[in-house]
Amino acid sequence: MICRLTVNGTPWEGDVPPRLTLADLLRDHLQLTGTHLGCEQGVCGACTVLCDGEAVRSCLMLAVQADGRSLTTVEGLDADPDAAALRDALVAGRGLQCGFCTPGFLLSALALRRADPPVDPARVPELLAGNICRCTGYGPIVAAVRAWLG
């Protein structure tokens, strides 16, 4: 099935099997391997990307459902100085160890930054509860995101 979408500002068009998930389209067809698969059931958040500006699980979306939409992955953050600032704050504050969850946290946080009305920084732990990290104990991630949103 023909699928047309825009990824990190670049249009893409291709013939994809309907069963292909958006995550596998990004990883295997577009070589954007910064989007990670941690559970493929919508729980861990490692595959989070922005779809028309909203954070979604790319493992819970078929590629054909993304037809006509605009996607942002971790590889697209260089174009956004604000996102790059959070990324640098996470690195500086040791908000990552193995790094597998990091792209998902970054994209979730980016969606929060764009939320209208703005999110209350006190709710950051709750708002990041849709992303699992097994290394850091969350404290440094919460602190970096809170400071960045603040």
């Binding site: 979604v56 699980r57 819970l60 979306m61 979730s108 509860a129 849709g130």
Partner: peptide, 9 residues
Amino acid sequence: VGHFQIRSR
């Protein structure tokens, strides 16, 4: 209802 990323879809 789930997390906000789930409610997006």
